[in-house]
Nucleic acid binder design. Sequence first.
DNA 1: TCTGGGGTCCTAGGACCC
DNA 2: TCTGGGGTCCTAGGACCC
Length: 425
Amino acid sequence: MRAIALVDCNNFYVSCERLFQPKLEGKPVVVLSNNDGCVVSRSQEVKDLGIKMAVPWFQMKDLAKRHGIIALSSNYTLYADISNRVMRLLSQCSPDQEIYSIDESFLDLTGMDGMNSLTEYAQSIRSTIKQCVGIPVCVGIAPSKTLAKLANHVAKKQKQYHSVCDFNAMTARVLDNLLAKIEVSEVWGVGRRSTSRLQGMSIGSVLDLKRSSAKRVRAEFGVVMERIVAELNGVACLELDDVTPPRQQIICSRSFGISVSLLVDLEQAVIAYTTRAAEKLRSQHSLAGGIQVYIRTNPHKDKAPQYQPAMLIPLFEPTDDTRLLCHAALSGLQQIYRSGYMYQKAGVMLTEIIAAAARPRTLFEDVAAQQKSAALMTTLDQINRRMGSGTLQLLGEGVRKSWSMRRGNMSQRYTTEWDELAAAR
DNA sequence: TCTGGGGTCCTAGGACCC
DNA sequence: TCTGGGGTCCTAGGACCC
């Protein structure tokens, strides 16, 4: 039988922080989103207090004080590096791996149950990762990705499985009894809207959805939900994507630490974000044919005047040159900017992305200029990679950066910066 | 005071073509 | 009285994920 495993790190960001600050072990800890806005990772102690994902931090400050919850700003440099280490180990556990997110990976384990059961194999994967990187993970195994997700959910929630749950090792009856006790909202791809509509159709549990009529589901919800039902019945519709395709759009946007109203501040932010987006574009060897720029007032302040314009600037020809992209983004910003508003966020989106190798030839192309641009961008990226991001930047990004985000309590970048390494005290 | 950021896929509807 | 049928492309918006 097909055996797809989903390996998922437990409370990933909190677990990364605990690696280098063992004093956080056993304490209630949360990691906050950019600008220390919302809770994005919770330790088990915090989950047990009933605190939900994505709760705004300011709403739970009182509760946090009462229970001594420790809140850390997010340290994505650290998390990305730890993730890479986990993923590299997992790649050795199966010939077929899909890295699904920063803390999750699918593995195809079909036919790998030789001498031992897959449960034992999954346990050995767990202990390898714990021993080599220090991150705790759970493993779910099933004949489809959607079921593997659910098996992982069971492995996490029900202690008797000891962090590994293999649906393939169960009889159909046992599995259905299990699925009958899980709410339909836990299914991968069933969000808030679909949950309430399904409940209106008396489909409340995973088993209800599994047994529902494919035709009816197709008519009511479309092809996506129809596939989910098939996957719940053990028919794999979603294959493992082992090569990540290049992004079709690249977004860089951020809320400001404080609201800004001046064009000059917005210009700095837009240059900074375009610079980041262009770096991502070059790292996947692509060119962008257009760039969209947008700015936004704070939608939560309903008494303040609201304004959220956007503008797409087509480029004369596809490019990956930070200077050309910034020039286009700034011209868009200048057209949509109005004074008198308090802006809370800005962003840019690169669109019409093509492979650099597929650059279209034009009558007007200036090959010498293209070569100079490529050499400059390569040098820029090399210096910033070696000396640290932002070592070399466009002057227009500014130095003072009054708009930059709040990060009140960030840990060191223990594994990627020489002067921030963990040290014995 | 304080509410994340970055993606994907699907669908519907309009414009346009022959 | 009576006004085709089928296809493509693009865009905006919805829903969802982590």
